[in-house]
Amino acid sequence: MEKIKFNLNGKDVSIEVDPSSRLIDVLRLNYGLTGTKEGCGEGSCGACVVLMDGRSVNSCLLPMANVINHKIVTIEEFSKSKAYECIKEAFSSLGGSQCGFCTPGMIIASYALLKKNPHPSEEEIREHLSGNLCRCTGYEAIVSAVILASKKGEGLW
């Protein structure tokens, strides 16, 4: 066991865990942050994506040792932001969320893209979101939602 210090959702936290623990388990079990989902446990589906220092990462593949001194933001905290509101509205108005299991990860990944590239082309969106699988929407509504968010959310990222 090690004392792992990191910043979770804006607060500095310190937790006594094995450094090999997966971030997803610590989020879901120790902090009760169940908005982060496990769809495959091997980084293929993206349902577990969270932000680490503003970049999208698979929390199922992150050992806690790698989280030390980094900023982790989950959907629970991100959903309080204006940027979330903008992306969510776009997802809502275009139908980007169906079963909802991929949605938190998809929204976080979309934000990470817009932060890096506020005006992505359709191709760039498809490339960036290719690590986030969705079986309901055929990606059509998700891709158009990101385009819409990028138009409406000027300055939010």
Binding site: G35, S92, C99
Partner: peptide, 21 residues
């Protein structure tokens, strides 16, 4: 026309509870 999907808010913010939650 379309109306707002009723479960959208919860699903987007990760508040919808699936069995593993």
């Amino acid at each position: 026309t379309s109306v707002k999907k009723v479960d959208n808010e919860d699903k987007c913010k990760g508040a919808a509870l699936f069995v593993d939650d």
